[in-house]
Each structure stands twice: as C-alpha cells, then as structure tokens.
C-alpha cells in the first residue's frame, strides 16, 4: 500500500500539468489581490453613504473558485491522463488490486489538495489583510483573525473536496474532457441556472452547490439556508458519491 502511494505521489510530481495548475493557483492569488486592491482604492475615494454598499474586498471570493477548479483538474488528470493512451493498463498490470490503486490515488490527490488548499487559503486571507488594512466592514469581511479562521479552514477543505470530486468523475468518465465539463457544469453552470427557478427552489438549489456550501459551513453567511453541520454533510457527500461511482466503474469494467 505504502509503495503504491509513493508511486502515485511520484506520478503527480513527474508531469508538467501539475506545475501548470499550481501556477494557476498563484495567478489566481495575484488576480484576487489586484481586484481587492482596485476595490479598496475605489472605496477610499467613495463618499460614506456609498461605502456602506460595498461588498467585501476579500480576495478569496476570486481566488477560491479558480483554485478549486484547478484542484479538480489535478484530481481528474490523476486518472484520466492514464486512460488517455492506455497507460492505465500498464498501471493495472503493476498494481492489479484496483481498490488499492484507488485508495492510493485518493490519499495522494486528497492529501496534496488539502495542503495546497490550506496554503492558498491562508495566503489569500493574508493578501486581503495587507491590502484592506484596518478599513472596516463591509470592505473587510472579518474584524479579527479569529473571526476569519473558520472561513479560511473551510476554504482550504473545499479545495480537497473538489479535487476528489474531479478524481471520482475522472474514474467514472475515463476522459479528461468529460470529467472537466461535468465538474465545470456542477460548479459554475448549476448555480447560474438555479437562480432562474421559482422561489423557494432557487435558493434551495443554490444552497447545495459546491461554491455556496463552504461559506455556509464556516458560518460566514447570514440567514444561510443550511446549518453548518448540514452544509458540511452535503459538502462531503459530493466526493463520496463521485468516488463511490468511480470506484464501482474502476473495479467492474475491463481495463
């Protein structure tokens, strides 16, 4: 088992796509910083009555969805890059126990995405603190680091969640394009379409989409439809369902 995990970890480190996707996270951080800076500059030049209508300038609002998707791509590629071109057969000949292979992939993808998510989430918060300074709410979402910590940790967790959803889709669909289209649809299209549903279904559907579960879990949305506990349960249900479906496909089908 440890050997297979070591092999999977080496695989992740020896392809270029991993580094491109890490670069994406860095670019997202930079982009989030720029947006945060522009909002803050705009805030400084606005009269007090307009300032009260400002949204939060926390860069995480921009950084997290990009990083989540990048992590989802890493997760999907961990298996689809092996289906493309047939490497999966070579891999399954060296590791014929498919459940072992799956668990190793989950450990490597989940573990590295959790680490990545933690780092990016803290950096994003730090960039926000540096740019926003001591300006009050609504520009600053959190007054103290203590207030921000649940949100920062939840954001870090969400990266691992999406990475594992990507891995599950990849196993199920065996194609990079298929897995990423499905992931993109789930993350970005469903919340947009949901808005057009009649009330209360619009809010109900939006509340269970990936992007809105994290702030509900960390309690940073007022009057959230879901309690933090339910939000966490739904958030974790995503990778569990995707991975179980993927595992059944991996074990049952001929390679």
């Amino acid at each position: 088992m440890i050997d297979v995990v070591a092999s999977e970890w080496l695989k992740v480190r020896t392809v270029r796509s991993t580094y491109y996707l890490l670069l994406t996270a860095v670019l997202a951080l930079a982009f989030g910083g720029v947006v945060s800076y522009l909002m803050t500059a705009d805030y400084d030049q606005s009269p007090p009555e307009l300032r009260a209508a400002f949204a939060s300038a926390d860069p995480s609002v921009f950084v997290m969805p990009f990083t989540q998707f990048a992590a989802g791509v890493i997760g999907a590629l961990a298996i689809t890059s092996e289906y493309t071109g047939g490497m999966i057969r070579t891999v399954l000949v060296t590791v014929p126990r498919r459940v072992t292979l799956l668990v190793a992939k989950i450990a490597v993808v989940g573990g590295s995405a959790l680490a990545l998510g933690g780092v990016v989430s803290f950096l994003s918060y730090g960039v926000g603190v540096v740019i926003i300074g001591d300006r009050p709410a609504p520009l600053a979402q959190f007054a103290t680091f203590g207030d921000a910590l649940p949100s920062v940790l939840a954001n870090g967790l969400s990266i691992a969640v999406v990475a594992l959803v990507g891995l599950g889709f990849g196993m199920l669909l065996r194609s990079t394009a298929g897995a990423l289209t499905t992931l993109c649809f789930l993350m970005f299209v469903v919340p947009m379409v949901a808005v057009f549903l009649p009330a209360p279904w619009n809010n109900r559907l939006v509340s269970v989409t990936l992007l809105y579960l994290t702030p509900q879990f960390s309690g940073s949305i007022e009057r959230a439809p879901l309690t933090p506990g339910w939000a966490l349960a739904v958030l974790l249900a995503y990778p569990v369902v995707a991975l179980v479906a993927g595992a059944v496909a991996l074990v049952r089908r001929d390679a």
């Binding site: 050997d3 092999s7 999977e8 080496l10 020896t14 071109g85 999966i88």
Partner: peptide, 29 residues
C-alpha cells in the same frame, strides 16, 4: 513474478523514460 509488454504506446507521454520506469518500479517496491 510477471513482466508484460502489451502496448508500447500505453505510456504517459509527458514523463521522461526514467521517471516512467521509476513510477512503475516504486509501486512494487
């Protein structure tokens, strides 16, 4: 116990030859 060559193209093109073999080797210690 068993070595197999099924399809020479069944490899991930992005890795170097040595890294490809290291990935396979490591899974079997």
């Amino acid at each position: 116990e068993v070595g197999a060559l099924l399809d020479a193209n069944a490899v991930h093109g992005g890795r170097s030859a040595v890294n490809h073999l290291r990935c396979l080797a490591r899974s079997n210690g």
